[in-house]
């Protein structure tokens, strides 16, 4: 499970993903679900170690509005690479909620999706098992031109460059 951050391989990190009914350990970085973060945010923010949220495809990302302070990480789950809801979640986190912290795609993350993922606002990618980080990093720069606005640039192409008449 290679981790890529900002277009380069990053050292592995140990985050414990907590099930909904699992108690929060005293130490160690943990990922909690959206509901727990919203309801137990105060206690979670008081921890010495880091807390992140793991968003599932059917979570309403806008539920994080007003709760972003103190979040060390937002991980967006892609249980199947064909489920594209996480792309909208990422876009809304960046564009609507103004989240500027680490946004990580996790799960069935394949090299051929990372170009899109970077554009909707992911700055960290945890590749699916066995997938090549080199291939993924190469794919990040596969296209040198994009037409539409996204989280990486709020301007569509025609506002970025003078396109010929």
């Amino acid at each position: 499970m290679a981790l890529i951050k900002h277009n380069a391989v990053a050292p592995a990190e140990l985050w414990t993903t907590l099930a909904a009914d699992q108690p929060v350990p005293a130490t160690g970085d943990v990922l909690v679900d959206l509901e727990r973060w919203v309801s137990e945010g105060e206690a979670l923010r008081a921890r010495a170690d880091r807390v992140g949220v793991l968003l599932q495809p059917d979570d309403d990302v806008l539920g994080l509005e007003g709760t972003l302070d103190g979040l060390a990480l937002i991980a967006v789950a892609f249980p199947k690479f064909t489920d594209g809801r996480g792309y909208s979640s990422a876009r809304l986190l960046r564009d609507r909620l103004g989240y500027t912290g680490e946004l990580r795609a996790v799960g069935h993350v394949l090299p051929d999706q990372v170009f899109y993922m970077r554009r909707v606002g992911f700055d960290a990618l945890e590749l699916a098992d066995g997938k090549s980080a080199d291939t993924a990093i190469a794919q990040l720069g596969e296209f040198s031109v994009t037409y539409q606005a996204a989280a990486d640039d709020s301007r569509p192409l025609f506002r970025r460059v003078a396109r010929p008449a």
Binding site: Y87, Q113, Y147, Q148, A150
Partner: peptide
């Protein structure tokens, strides 16, 4: 066509 080409949010509808 241009807006939808490689639209990063809508490739896995």
């Amino acid at each position: 066509r241009q807006w939808s080409t490689f639209h990063p949010e809508f490739a896995f509808l």
